[in-house]
Structure formats: C-alpha cells, structure tokens
Simulated scan of single mutants.
Amino acid sequence: MLKLGITRGLSKINPSVWQPIIKSDFFTSTCQNTGTLHFEREWKPPINVKGWPSKLHARHSIYRVVGRELGPTELKVILTKDSLEFGVAGEVLVLEKMIGRSMINKGEATYASPENLEKFASHSINKSPQTTTGRRLLLWLRTTQLECPMRSDVSWVMTPAIAARGLQRAHNLVVAENALELPDYPITSDNPDSWSQHDIKISVNGIDTITVKMNIIQWNKENKNL
C-alpha cells in the first residue's frame, strides 16, 4: 500500500504551528507516467465542533492510494510529411501515444486539434482529386525499385499484360493493362539489352501518371515463387 505524508518524527512536530498541506479527506493527482491516482486519508480527523476547525495532527497528512485511472493510450495526429510507414502528408491518423509524440517532436506530424484540422482542410494537398490510397501508392512507386522476373529458357515479348503479371508476382502490385505503358521500343528475350532497367508509365486512378524504372531480372529457383 502506497502512503504519502509524514511517517517519521511525528513527536518533534509542534501541533500549534504545523498546518497540513491538504485538508481534504480525498484528492486526486495526475502524473504523466502513472495516470490519475485517487488518494484517501489513512486516519480521518475527528468531527469538529460547530464553528471550530477540525483538530488535525501530523498523521492526518498520510494518504493511501484507493484508485488509479490510466489516460488515453492513443493520440490523434495529422501528418505533415510523407511517411512510407504511416501515410502521406495531410492524413489524419490515430497512433500510439508514444509514436505520435515522437513524430510531433520530429516535425513529422501535429496534433489533430480543431484549429489544425481546419487549417489542413484548406491545404492544397487535400484539394487534390487523388484519393489518399492513390497518394500512398504514388509515394511507394517513387521510392521503390520495381522488378519483373522473366524466364530465360523460353522466348517472350514484353506486353502490358506480361509486365502487369510480373509486377503482381514480385511486389503484389495489381496494375490494370490499360494503366501501364511500356517504352516505344520492343523488349524481348532475344535482345540482351532487354535484361536491364526500362522506364514505364503507371497511371493511378486515371488522375496521376508516374514514370518509374522497372528492372527485368531472370527467373531462377531462388525466386520460383514469383
């Protein structure tokens, strides 16, 4: 049992000059690490005579913990910078309090207060017709090296359908054939230059088109599941 107050030297205290700090039988204390603690006097003071204050002694300043309330463990924030792990700028997320405070300290997010929500609602990013999921995909495409595994023991000619299938196998990325544009030169298994990087264009929701590099690699036993 946790007790707060004076536990030693009670006989040395002059009751005529000692005044307790807390005069209530119950009180609460809020701490950053332990939440809100509720305290109760260990020894309650006697009932006072009407018109006269209670006679409090040193032992009446000893309290014990009778309850504990933990604060919220999550924090609602607005991302101010793009993050591959959490989302894109302007997105409102609910994160663990420790992670949210760390991102706020680094300048990667801010508190989702009514004022900040109103501020970011008028931001140019949120006025874009692109969806949040589309913006996340664009961020991933800009920071990822795409690979398309192809077999070297058979003849093939690269088409949007084959490229889409290869990206799905390698990255679990589903791209429609009409949303993928290959270079204007042929890419075949017979051409040694085909086994290299190529610039392809991917359209996201028909709104934004991004040019990314796709590296054609040889399929082997190590990546046979691709």
Rank of each mutant, 00 (worst) to 15 (best):
T7F: 13
R8I: 10
G9H: 11
L10S: 09
S11V: 14
D25L: 10
F27E: 08
T34C: 11
G35E: 05
E42V: 11
K44I: 13
P53Y: 02
A58E: 13
I62P: 00
Y63E: 01
V66H: 05
G67Q: 11
L70S: 14
G71S: 12
E74R: 13
L75H: 04
K76T: 13
D82Q: 09
E85W: 05
F86Y: 15
A89H: 04
V94Y: 08
K97V: 07
R101L: 12
R101A: 04
E108A: 03
A109G: 02
A112T: 08
A112W: 03
A121E: 12
S122V: 09
T133W: 09
G134L: 02
R136N: 07
T143F: 06
E147P: 06
P149E: 05
S152Q: 14
D153P: 04
D153V: 08
S155I: 12
A161E: 10
A163S: 06
R165F: 02
R165D: 08
G166A: 15
A170Y: 02
N172L: 13
L173D: 00
V175I: 15
V175E: 03
A179F: 07
I187S: 00
S194Y: 03
W195T: 09
I200Q: 00
I202D: 00
N205A: 14
K213Y: 09
N215F: 08
I216D: 02
N220Q: 14
L226W: 03
